[in-house]
Design a protein around this nucleic acid. Structure first.
Lengths: 215, 215
DNA sequence: TAAACAATCAACAACGTGTTGCAAAATCAT
DNA sequence: ATGATTTTGCAACACGTTGTTGATTGTTTA
């Protein structure tokens, strides 16, 4: 029953190696990071690295899988009632997790992070949502795919900025912002923030109508 | 007056090196591409590569600058009348250029392309647009930045998909799609495409109201 | 044609890689 | 606590890529 992980030494080694990579990912992409570099910084022998990981990419993949697993344990706690706030709750939960793991997320989402992994996560959310939409009405599948990509990639950009600038907005605010950007678009979203009372009124009318045609 | 470029040999060498890199960028990121690999494929001596480029990244940067320059020559031809269709025309012109240079663009925008370069181009367009908006009304600068990032990153995702799937939509259609996604958002955009007459009517009402509050 | 220039070639030290066998140290189970 | 087990450290290895060099061959253009 005694698996590899039970050994304190292994736990420390893996931890320090992962931490070192995370640190290096702020300066350069994975492919520019050498095994020697990691080991020098982590004060480990190179053969120790090879005992646990194939190469820096493999190491990164393991870190990502770990994060994905943890995130899942948070998500499965959610009660899905088919509510229209479902997507909002899903996003909020994710953002809360990101806040609690800011260092790691900054590395993975940052300039030298793993884009394919970023998309993988966001796609999980959107694809689910999109399938719902597809069943409700007869949309052009090609268009739906474009919508999804736009939303996913756009969201990643917003999240990156949020992480870089110190996460001043709360998880709720971020979930709200992204949903507004995705579903209401830029025009309505901006108009909500101008001081003119007249504009505010009009926006409210638009909102009511929008609701009446929502799927 | 005889610059480096006038020599046929230099022209050929640079051309074949660039072409080879473009080809390799379909399989792997720049940082995984070695000088030796390029030279073997291009059938050149390694020292010839070093005579013109510092390393594969430098080569890629030069390719990008070249593209940027060419694109600019197309863009300066546009007449800017301050029209509301200005952004559309700008985008259409860019998409037309992309269609004419599909191979190169596919490499630079693809899975292993240069993300920072992609953003650089799209930011040029959006930042200009956003500054206009900022002068019109007193928007929260932070929000405007988020909008810009969402739009830029979203657009890149859409363009990537478009390039990968054979560019079946025309340049006009793409410009239209991206503007709709950016300014009207997903809800309105999708509702435009459902067959229900009732929904179509409602959308029209929303549109009218939206127009009345447009900046 | 001659001078200028570009590409080739071979050789170089330097560095990272991935693997090895053995010794030293830490940990685990009894 | 002690012995068995496991992990890490160490040194050495062949191998491949790097960036640079100087001498040579070939091409261009003035």
């Amino acid at each position: 029953m005694a698996r590899e992980k039970d050994d304190r030494r292994v736990k420390y080694t893996k931890m320090i190696i992962k931490q070192t990579l995370i640190g290096l990912l702020r300066q350069k992409p994975v492919d520019k990071i050498t095994v020697k570099e990691i080991c020098d910084l982590a004060d480990l022998n190179r053969s120790t690295f090879y005992a646990h990981f194939k190469d820096p990419r493999d190491l990164l993949r393991q870190i990502e899988e770990e994060l994905m697993g943890e995130l899942n344990t948070h998500l499965v706690k959610l009660t899905f009632v088919g509510d229209e706030n479902e997507t909002f709750q899903l996003m909020k939960t994710i953002f809360e997790y990101v806040v609690d793991n800011a260092d790691l997320c900054r590395a993975l989402m940052g300039e030298y992070g793993d884009i394919s992994f970023q998309k993988e996560i966001m796609m999980l959310i959107q694809e689910q949502k999109m399938e719902e939409w597809m069943h409700h009405e007869r949309f052009d599948p090609e268009l739906v795919e474009y919508f999804t990509l736009f939303s996913v990639n756009g969201s990643i950009g917003v999240i990156q900025k949020w992480l870089q600038s110190g996460m001043k907005k709360s998880a709720s605010e971020m979930a709200d912002l992204i949903m507004k950007l995705t579903y209401q678009g830029l025009s309505n979203c901006i108009n909500e923030n101008i001081s003119s009372v007249k504009a505010r009124k009009n926006v409210e009318n638009v909102k009511k109508l929008s609701k009446s045609i929502e799927c």
